[in-house]
Amino acid sequence: MAVAPLAGRRVLDLGALCAQRPHALAASMAARLCAGYGAEVVRPLPSGGEPFAATPPLLPDGGSALDRFLNAGKRQGATTGRFDVAIGDRASLAAHAEEVPVKARISVFGPGEEDPPMTELGLMALSGLFGIVGEAPPAPPARLAGHQVSYSAGLAACMALLAALLAGGEEVVDVSLLDVAAWLNWKVAAGVMVMGSAPVRGGARVTWFTVPAKDGHMALVYQDKDWPPLRDLIGDPRLRDDPRFATGPARGANRAALLEVIGPWFAARTRAEITAAAQAKRVPLGPVKWPVELLDDAQYRARGFLAPDGMPALPVGWDGQRLTLEGNRADAG
């Protein structure tokens, strides 16, 4: 059995006291990870109660799935007492955690900069993520699903806290939400360095999309090397003979025409039939599943990703073993 690395540590989760939603989400996720690593996590609440209590998505009982996920393994409590770690924004840390030796401070731009009003949409726009997600202009950009920017900042904060605790002493860990969002968008920087220009949404080479099937949708995410077996799988001679479909850029420039050709083949088959046929030819197509279907997904079951009630597991491991909230025991995995 592995010993949880934060067993015996007390963490003050100030996420509910943060002034802005991205900071609150990031701090709450960092504390959630700390709980997974064995810490006792205390979450003080404002006078109005838990800020995520009514945040969608809502469960059948009316509760918030976000609240249930982010606050699993924590307990409500006051800011008094001894804590090893505190996580929050500048104001909450200054008001409630002056004596805590190790702090994670969430901000938009980092130390020395005042926090402007900010949303997760604003962070995606500032970091350039809006430039690559969604259909080509004039269609509006698309946001990333869920809270990927804030959750990634929470992961960064947790990893930095683990390093600070290992080093010992007092330390303030600064996590910039914008820096994390820019890191998530590393392909833009890489594209500029390698090709001299940044990728843009709906570019000529983009031929990834979802296609209606008989019982849902299929996701087409493939490389140029996968086009010949995909073309043969569908079996329409136009895909071989029409020059509009001969190359990746040509298919990207003629997406509407391509969809007209391949659409009927997908629409006439179920997701399971398409997946089996694609796997036989090693074509990387995947079914788009409803959330309830994921509970019975073979891969998710094998990985223990979802509990029977739908609660997702966290990828929290230590010494090669997965740590769980239940007693902070180690399970093989």
Rank of each mutant, 00 (worst) to 15 (best):
V3I: 14
A4V: 03
A4T: 05
P5T: 03
P5R: 06
P5N: 08
L6R: 01
R9Q: 10
V11A: 04
L12N: 01
D13R: 06
C18I: 02
A19L: 11
P22Y: 12
H23G: 03
A26R: 02
A31M: 05
G36F: 08
Y37L: 13
Y37K: 01
Y37S: 04
E40T: 12
P44F: 00
P46R: 01
P51L: 01
T55Q: 15
D61R: 11
A65N: 01
A65M: 04
D67M: 11
L70S: 00
A72R: 10
A72C: 09
Q76W: 11
Q76A: 14
G77M: 04
A78V: 10
R82Y: 14
I87P: 04
R90L: 13
A95Y: 04
A97Y: 00
P101Y: 03
G110Q: 12
E113F: 15
T119L: 13
T119K: 13
E120T: 05
L121H: 06
G122Y: 03
G128W: 01
I132C: 00
A136S: 15
A136D: 08
A136F: 02
P138W: 01
P141R: 01
A145T: 08
H147I: 07
V149R: 00
L155H: 09
L155V: 12
L155D: 05
C158D: 05
A160M: 09
G168A: 15
E170G: 15
E171R: 15
V180K: 00
L184W: 01
N185V: 01
V192K: 05
M193V: 09
V200K: 02
A204G: 12
R205Q: 14
V206F: 13
T210E: 13
P212L: 08
P212Q: 09
A213C: 07
A213D: 03
K214E: 14
D215G: 10
M218S: 05
V221E: 10
V221C: 12
D224E: 13
D226C: 07
L230A: 10
R231H: 11
D232E: 13
L233I: 13
I234L: 11
G235F: 10
P237V: 03
R238F: 14
R238V: 06
R238Q: 14
P243D: 10
F245K: 04
A246W: 08
T247I: 05
G252D: 02
A253Q: 12
N254K: 09
A267D: 04
A267V: 03
A276R: 15
Q279G: 13
V288H: 05
V288Q: 10
W290L: 12
E293W: 08
E293F: 05
D297G: 06
R301G: 13
L306V: 04
P308M: 03
D309K: 06
G310K: 00
P312M: 03
G320A: 07
G320H: 07
A332S: 14
G333M: 06
